[in-house]
Amino acid sequence: MTELLAERGHVFALTGAALIALGFYGFMAQRAVIRRLISFNVIGSGVFLLFGGTGYSAAGVDPVPQALIITGIVVALALTAFAAALAVRLAQGGDRDDGTDDGEAGP
């Protein structure tokens, strides 16, 4: 049982590392904002998987990484949603929306 856990930990960690590498390639190779954003998400998933993998050991499963991964996923979700929205606005509205908003409102 305990060996199995440690084994699983290695699998998670190695998969995580592979995902990080894949995502990093995507980040370097792609220029489009959305594609880079997806690359970031792939890297993020890899980091979380790696993190989860470190919690597995012969002594049992450490709950701390799992608790932190949940938090991390929430943060990553929020960031991705915001980044996607920003990318969409950039594509639709241009660099800035002069005159429509607060240009004359004040310094």
């Binding site: 990080i20 950039l90 800035r96």
Partner: peptide, 22 residues
């Protein structure tokens, strides 16, 4: 101010965060 500058900033910030997290 500038969405393009914000996106560039975001890319750096995200990359920095991920490196930090790793």
């Amino acid at each position: 101010g500038s969405r393009q500058a914000a996106v560039n900033y975001m890319m750096i910030a995200l990359a920095g965060s991920l490196a930090y997290l790793l």
